[in-house]
């Protein structure tokens, strides 16, 4: 078999295996539940019967193995179980976790996608320039600014942006509430500030990593060689450096998109954006476990997928693997 294809298949298998183990961990964390959990959810006034019924409903009377397989087989069919918000109440209003996650996941992907679309080209450009003009004033300025941006909590950047772009100069809105039948341009206007916050955060990371990757590459002997034989600077970059730079750059992009998945949680809460991050935070404070588990699985899945993608691009773009001797 083609060695490239084989390595890719190996990575794919590893990714699926990781996701499987992660799903087991997420499911098994329920085993660590403290004994008074049912009362914490149902309230102190719950009768012993309601508590018993609740525990039966969430499957605490079954073995962890049985519970896991019930859960995961449901998940594979797109059924993440029921929210606790409906458990305990005898009225038949049932809220399915999948229905809660679905539309919010789309909103989150929309926000993250918009941020990525701006951040990726911008940071690659800045990183390249900083690496090429190393130790210049531009490099140092970008370095200090990006270090400051990395060090700030997301909510700090978010509130500064609100302060200036929504309160002092009301260009954008501070509440990023979007509805399903909103025109596209209005949506973009509504998510401008959260997008900008996310862009600030990941551009800093991505730019620093790109810079480091390029500097690392420019220090390798074959670049030195091509310089010494008299190739023009542009040719050195495009013909000699770039083919080998794709791998680290792809890695940088994927890592930061994965980081975006997490960064989105805080930003969604700041701007009360109806995304999956806010849903998860709400569920955690209500201790609504099925929702937490569903969200965690979605987040972990995206994270693993992005890392897998980075691995595959690294393999595919590696000239040493593509042209085996």
């Amino acid at each position: 078999m083609n060695p490239v294809l084989r390595t890719i298949l190996q990575r794919l298998g590893l990714g699926i295996a990781t996701l499987f183990v992660v799903s087991i961990i997420i499911s098994l964390t329920i085993e660590m539940l403290p004994g008074d959990f049912a009362r914490a959810v149902l309230g102190q006034s719950a009768t012993p019967e309601t508590v018993a019924a609740f525990q039966r409903e969430i499957g605490l009377d079954r073995s962890p193995v049985v519970r896991y397989f019930n859960w995961i087989s449901g998940v594979l069919r797109g059924d993440f179980g029921e929210s606790y918000a409906s458990a305990g109440s005898l009225a038949g209003h049932r809220r399915l976790v999948a229905e809660m996650i679905g539309p919010r996941l789309l909103n989150t992907l929309f926000l993250a996608g918009a941020a990525a679309l701006i951040a990726v080209p911008l940071s690659l450009f800045l990183g390249f320039m900083a690496a090429l003009y190393r130790n210049s004033f531009f490099d140092r300025a970008v370095n200090v600014v990006s270090l400051t941006s990395i060090s700030s909590p997301e909510f700090f950047l978010a509130y500064i942006l609100i302060m200036f772009l929504a309160v002092k100069f009301p260009i954008f809105v501070s509440l990023a509430s979007i509805t399903p039948n909103m025109p596209f341009l209005d949506r973009l206007h509504a998510i401008a500030l959260p997008t900008l916050t996310l862009v600030l955060v990941i551009v800093a990371h991505m730019m620093r990593m790109t810079r480091a990757a390029i500097i690392n590459l420019l220090a390798s002997p074959y670049i030195e060689m091509s310089r010494l034989k008299g190739a023009r600077p542009m040719q050195v970059i495009l013909r000699h450096a770039l083919p080998n730079a794709w791998a680290p750059i792809a890695n940088v992009i994927a890592l930061n998109l994965a980081y975006l998945v997490v960064g989105v949680v805080v930003v969604e809460v700041v701007f009360t954006y109806p995304g999956i991050g806010q849903l998860m935070v709400d569920a955690v404070s209500k201790r609504d476990l099925p929702v937490v588990q569903g969200c965690a699985l979605v987040f972990a899945g995206t994270y693993i997928l992005l890392n897998l993608l980075a691995d595959i691009v690294t393999i595919v773009s590696n000239p040493r693997l593509l042209h085996p001797r």
Binding site: T18, V22, I25, A258, V261, V262, V265, M280, V281, V284, V292, C295, A296, F299, A300, Y303, I304, N307
Partner: peptide
């Protein structure tokens, strides 16, 4: 392989 903040949540 799980984002830290998500796992912490």
């Amino acid at each position: 392989s799980i984002p830290q903040l998500i796992f912490a949540l």
